[in-house]
Design a binder for these strands. Structure first.
Lengths: 223, 223, 223, 223
DNA sequence: GATGAATGAGCCTTCATTCAT
DNA sequence: GATGAATGAAGGCTCATTCAT
């Protein structure tokens, strides 16, 4: 097994940690398998082989396939939420910087990997995972939307723009989502950097005083 | 949809027409099943039952499940292309009207149905359908992008805007795509009309002289 | 029925003859399909395609697959019996000439074709065809054996050989059968002529006064 | 193959040994099913039921039906070869004894069972199994033929016979094969003993100094 | 904890058979 | 006579799940 970084400490890790490590390993393998073979073709054996363990072990840790998939979806959702929450927390308080932080967060190299994009798409497409997602993560998304709308409202107010904050927020959000989709359906996908500039172009169109295609305008005056 | 030639005779459909009719019926049932149960859970029996025929007949007309799904994807792609081509052809020649036509076409009531949106998403997510799609429909999408870029370039030139036409085109495109995705992942999806206004808001941000959130500005200056 | 002689008269043939012609055509196609794809893989559609007719027609003429296969087996059996009966009738009355006639008959170019050899073997191997064969053709085979034994008895008596006629008859018979099998399982099958010489070698071993490896000795003295 | 190390412990067969045991059990069941129902009617479920296991297990061990049948054919071929090789090795060096050993080996009670005869015939008849057999076992058969020819050549030389060794060898070989076929197509099949005497009769016809219908002559002159 | 043999439900597919035209 | 759409039983195969070791 060459998943090595954690290995040296392996001995000292009590059972509980080892258990979490195994679970994460299997969730990672699930994401990879979803990306490589699609939802329909992802089998327990696949996941086990990808993770380099015996196929019985997957059931030992997740009981059923459904639970494995649900846990994987929740992991992605949680990672996504933690990511933008941390980005917001780390950014300055002014709305432009906060919006910038949200945009950049979406194209973070830990979040925006080809495998994870495909995995997300697989879950969106699968009828049975939508209600689960809504139930467990609907609140997250709502919080995200409220945050974004609030930020947009402050920017609109600050800049004397005439847009509806809700609608601007939605345009920015779907632009990011649509760009994700674009990244995985293009024959020759562009870079994360180019993706980022695409969303910035949208932000710049709405808030030309605060953004241009390169991102947040440096001599940001207001707030 | 150009499956109309035989319609006048409607009552006495001969075998040949009946054959095409059956195939279309089965493709429709496939889209419905994809939407209702997802890609992974869509079975041949499902499709057959939805279409109200025996499962053997599906194989009689499509040989394998894979071919049925491929034909369904191609049908959606063809319908989509025919839709925007027709919209462009019917619109006045000025770029704003052409852009308006493209935007409206995407939220056409024949194209933008819940079932078809989910079906598209299912195909995007499915690893094995992507290469097929690229091979058979990549050219369509490229043509769409070229058209949109050309229209944006003319608008940018006409309005003394400073945007990069390629990037504006991409923002508009991914906004429409992202809105589609939004329509199917929201708990309480908004109306097609609201979706349309969202994309118009984006167009208005880039081309305020030609668009507002209600759509194409009536007292269109140029042309 | 030799499929070519009848063609010119085709028009004049009443329905009855046409019917027989079709049936024979389908039986021929069945033999070919058995040889090409094996018993297990021979389908009604196969037979129809081989015969160049629609697949519904096979059922029209033979009702069920089982009947088609049975009729094919009976056809082969009848053709085989007619062949050796005719050979015996055409041969001189002395036992050596009669034995010679039987041997030659087995490697007749109409009987001993690759397709028919495989078809025979397919029927032998198929559990369900054995009882049918026994019931309908057991008598033929018994008659063949009795004839052969009688001929051998006369040759043994005439030549002062000390063999058991029954056993000689069986050796000659299984040698011919084994040679058939050999013809179809060899990588590079030998010619019908070489096959014939093999059986003659066996006959010569038992009846050196009457046979050599080239066949019946010409200056045959006795009878 | 290291499946032997564990043998001493026989009672507590570890997993590895159990695996081989299962495979053999399933191959035996396949032979039985081929004999009972024929190639075309042999189903995976049949084999599983015969072996007393679930049908899923057959696929677990052999992946596909095709592989199961191929492995079965190879097993029969290997068993057949091992049988005559062992017989030759155990027999005295003189050619008559060697020929006797080969003949007896063919009617060995482990090789010449009704089930196995039918199974062989099923494979001969099946178009798709012939190339597989040729590829994997053609060399075995060639070795058998070469051995037999060599033995016949030595007998011919020793006894001043005038036969062609190749042809004698072939007659003896097809006589044995034909007798096998006879054993399974006769209404009232004769005993293995009577089958043996039939082949001895053939050997006696060619080599009267060494064989009679009872087998190898005891006062063997040469060697 | 971990493995892998074993089970059985369910799916895709084939194909004999029927039947309207 | 002939065609080909339509049916449905049955088979091969996959795979989630269980369980003895």
């Amino acid at each position: 097994m060459n998943r090595t970084a954690a290995e040296p400490a392996a001995i000292a890790l009590p059972r509980k940690a080892s258990r979490e490590h195994r679970r994460q390993q299997l969730i990672d393998a699930t994401i990879e398998s979803l990306a490589r073979r699609g939802y329909a073709q992802t089998t327990m054996t696949d996941v086990a082989v990808t993770a380099g363990v015996s196929h019985g072990l997957v059931n030992f840790h997740f009981d059923t396939k459904e639970k494995l998939l649900t846990e994987t979806l929740l992991y992605l959702a949680e990672e996504y939420r933690d990511n933008w929450l941390a980005a917001l927390a780390a950014a300055p308080a002014d709305p432009a910087a906060q919006l910038d932080a949200l945009i950049v967060a979406d194209f973070n190299e830990r979040i925006c990997t080809p495998s994870k994009l495909v995995a997300w798409c697989a879950f969106w497409a699968e009828a049975q995972s939508r209600p689960i997602y809504q139930e467990k993560c609907g609140a997250n998304d709502l919080a995200y939307i409220r945050n974004l709308e609030e930020i947009c409202a402050r920017l609109v107010a600050a800049g004397n723009y005439r847009h509806s904050p809700q609608r601007v927020a939605r345009v920015l959000r779907v632009t990011a989502e649509g760009t994700w989709l674009d990244l995985l359906s293009m024959i020759e996908p562009y870079s994360r950097d180019e993706a980022l500039r695409t969303v910035y172009a949208c932000a710049a169109a709405f808030f030309p005083d605060h953004f241009d295609e390169a991102g947040l305008r440096k001599p940001s005056v207001d707030n």
